[in-house]
Design a protein around this nucleic acid. Structure first.
Lengths: 135, 135
DNA sequence: TTTTTAAGAGAGACTAATTCTCATTTGCAT
DNA sequence: ATGCAAATGAGAATTAGTCTCTCTTAAAAA
């Protein structure tokens, strides 16, 4: 991690990301922070988001062309509900075989992968069940 | 597929995508087409790319925040080489268990997924082998 | 074939998201 | 306390893509 000074703004930004629901875009985060801390400018938010990603403190995901930030950095995937648009963290283990299969077939050395699953989340499935005629 | 008129421009765009190396961005495609067919305007390229994606003729991928177009539409994943930046189509079969695992753990119905693998392609691995002291 | 007409094209205005610039402020080492 | 590099804020610039509006043209109808 690079040498950083601790500023009020950076603290506010990080606190907001940690405390809030996940997967906000920069703009959403900006609006959220505006509510309680109008001191923090938009450039500062973009600048800090970039730094936090570079430092591996948070991670960046792109869903449907929109860049979003995720406080979760460890190993996980994402599930995007095509009905409500919700983005959910998914923790399943399918690490194992990929690297070997790809090495054997292509000679490529894989050190990381990302998976986005698309479908219908449980909330939306339940909602649908109550109005089956709409399906 | 929606009703479409066949125009010279659309043909040029589609031909260029089909004939060229894969995974160009809109801008790259525009520059490429400019070389041989300066008739085709940028709006037309964007408009047609969108239509072709909507019609399922080509597919759209986002790599490192950049939207790219892929003439391959069937089932496949992508491998991104972190050394040369190359994007390769990967065809491996790991469809099977995902949907069931996610349904059991989260109650989410998965109907599709995308995987991006990151690592070092064979070309770049070979290049490295010849200069091991740099690693 | 000519005529008609709506889809498509082209130029460039517009928009949204993000980065950059630069003058000002501020955390922190001395 | 002082100095200075790092960080901030405001807004300009950039980028990627969409929209608008007029002109052109593929192709259906006459």
């Amino acid at each position: 991690m690079s040498t950083k000074r601790s500023t009020l703004q950076r603290q506010i930004i990080l606190d907001t990301i940690k405390s809030l629901g996940k997967h906000l875009s920069a703009e959403e985060l900006y609006l959220e922070i505006q509510k309680k801390h109008p001191i923090v400018g938009k450039s500062t938010i973009y600048r800090n988001l970039r730094q936090l990603v570079d430092d591996g403190v948070i991670s960046q995901i792109v869903i449907d062309g929109v860049v979003r930030y995720d406080k979760k950095t460890g190993f996980h995937y994402h599930f995007i509900c095509e009905v409500c648009g919700g983005i959910f963290d998914v923790e399943i283990d399918c690490d194992d075989k990929f690297a070997d299969i790809i090495m054997n077939k292509y000679g490529f050395k894989t050190n990381r992968h990302e998976i986005d699953f698309f479908g219908v989340c449980s909330n939306c499935t339940d909602a649908k069940k109550t109005t089956p005629e709409e399906i």
